[in-house]
Amino acid sequence: MEHVVELKNVTKKFKGFSLKPINLQVRRGFVTGFIGANGAGKSTTIKMMMNLLKPDAGKVKLFGLDYQTHERAIKERIGFVYDGNVFYEGLNLKDIKRIVGPAYKRWDDKVFYRYVEQFELPLNKAIKTFSKGMQMKASLAIALSHHAELIIMDEPTAGLDPIFRRELLDLLQEIMLDGSRTIFFSTHITTDLDRIADYIAFINNGEMMFNQSIHDIAENYQLVKGGVDLLDRDTEKAFVHIHRTSTGFQALTDNIEAVKKTFGDSVVMERASLEDMMYYMKGGKQHVQFN
């Protein structure tokens, strides 16, 4: 089984927001970064993966199993880290371990205490006295202590300082080393991903824009800069989005060959960062807008 998570034509409607039919596969053994602006549907998608929300239509499968019949078996194999603290804030880490640990068949006290030591977490202090970074470390220690195959994280780096973010990313890289784990994490800080992600899934306004390897993205998308006089109704078709200024235009293309053919050397082409893509695709794919 190549995919640990499979969403097929999943939809969900809320007041004022809807998830369009989403198809998403998360590959086993890799880090997939899930990006999108605030409110794009990242948390909703993650909640459906965790069965905290039920989709209106479509199928959600984890490890090839569905939640209707295999809820416990699926969750045994998932470690979760959420944006905020979900643990009883008045309890200390030792008591939280007493509550969470027995829930898992494969809970491993040794691993847990090893992480507690590595992260320098106090065992007898209430979670509410922890800093944001320490809360994140505590969640991570718990998520990693039951030999989970899939680690799902919702905005784990949000609100962390840069040094701690880097530490966290290094740690994630470390836990990927044995090759048996899969990490799926959402973020809107795209620079986190350049460092560790193998695949990027991009959601925008409730719609999946792409789910490709970092390598493919670099090959498929480029930023194009040139004079405004080069643009007309036909040439614009090669771009996802165009940003015009008085000195020229900047645009994102997913059709590099066509751009090369049309413009040749009259434009400058460079690698598009994830942030560029998020910015240019904000208005929707194949939707040329003029700013």
């Binding site: 979760f80 643990f87 969470v100």
Partner: peptide
């Protein structure tokens, strides 16, 4: 008093319980 908090329900439902 503990269970009515949303976070508690997110926690319990993310653990291997139905």
């Amino acid at each position: 008093a503990y269970d009515e908090k949303a976070e508690t329900n997110i926690l319990l439902n993310s653990l291997p319980y139905t």
